[in-house]
Simulated scan of single mutants.
Amino acid sequence: MSIHIIPHGRVTEHIKKGLRDHSSVEKVYLLPSHKFADVSAELATELETFGYDIEIREVDAFELRSVVDTIVTVAKENPGEDLYVNITGGTNLMAGAATSSAFFIGAKPYYVLERQDDESLEELVISLPAPKQPLTFDLSDAQREVLEQLGDWDNEGRTGIIGRQLGDALGVSSQKISYHTGQLEERGLIETHPQGRRKEIELTDVGRLYLRWTGGKQND
């Protein structure tokens, strides 16, 4: 099933253009702010006449976490489905949150340009590079503990972390730390850097965002 997740504000023409450019769209989640809930309801009625299954979920247009959490929730409710995110509408924050969220859930983000001359619909709808696979939101408890410990040390400005230090802090064997860090590195949440016989471990920017958006102990 093809599902489109669409944050928006007052303007909605780009939504209809984006949907027309994609075949086999079965369900659409409209994400308006409270201010434009009536606009969303009117649009939903119009889209339903064309056979789309519409669901409206209000977000705070000026709260990053609100937009991200809503998109992530939709993805979790629809595992294994073909997800698209229209990043065109709403505030700049909504667009940025939608783009980042598309990366996390493994969706295909796209942008709809305004018509300037006589461009075709295909020329107006721009697909953005999509991740090879979504990040796994449900890490194991042990992997989450490793990531959060690295997050705590990252907040303190501590660098040069090695596996033995993680093991000592968490009471976990070096072999298990090696396995967990390998899994986290595959997901792009951490990276390792050989320093002689040592292998130093640090969070990536994606890891920091992951902790912030999934309730980790990262600073805002």
Rank of each mutant, 00 (worst) to 15 (best):
D152L: 09
E186H: 00
L93T: 14
M1A: 14
L203V: 00
K35R: 15
V112K: 08
G18W: 03
E119R: 07
K176Q: 15
R164M: 11
A37V: 14
S100N: 06
I105K: 08
H180K: 05
S23E: 11
A61G: 08
G171K: 13
G182V: 04
I126R: 13
T204I: 00
A75V: 09
R20I: 06
Y84D: 06
D168V: 15
G51A: 11
S178H: 04
D53W: 09
T70N: 14
F103T: 07
R65H: 15
V172M: 13
S173W: 08
L121I: 06
P129W: 04
Y210P: 03
L30R: 09
E156F: 03
H180P: 05
F103L: 12
G196M: 07
V72Y: 12
P109K: 07
A41L: 14
W153A: 04
Q165W: 06
I56C: 10
T204R: 00
T214C: 01
T181K: 00
V74F: 11
Y111P: 15
F104W: 09
K108T: 13
G167M: 05
S140E: 08
V112W: 10
E46T: 14
Y179E: 01
F50R: 15
V25M: 10
K35S: 14
L139C: 03
I3C: 11
E13Q: 10
A169Y: 13
D21I: 03
T49D: 10
Y179N: 00
L47D: 06
Q175E: 10
F36L: 13
V28D: 02
E13A: 06
M1V: 06
T91C: 12
G207P: 00
T136H: 07
G9N: 07
R208M: 01
P32E: 14
L64N: 12
D118H: 02
Q133C: 05
D154K: 00
S174L: 10
G151W: 05
A41N: 12
G207I: 00
A41T: 14
P134H: 04
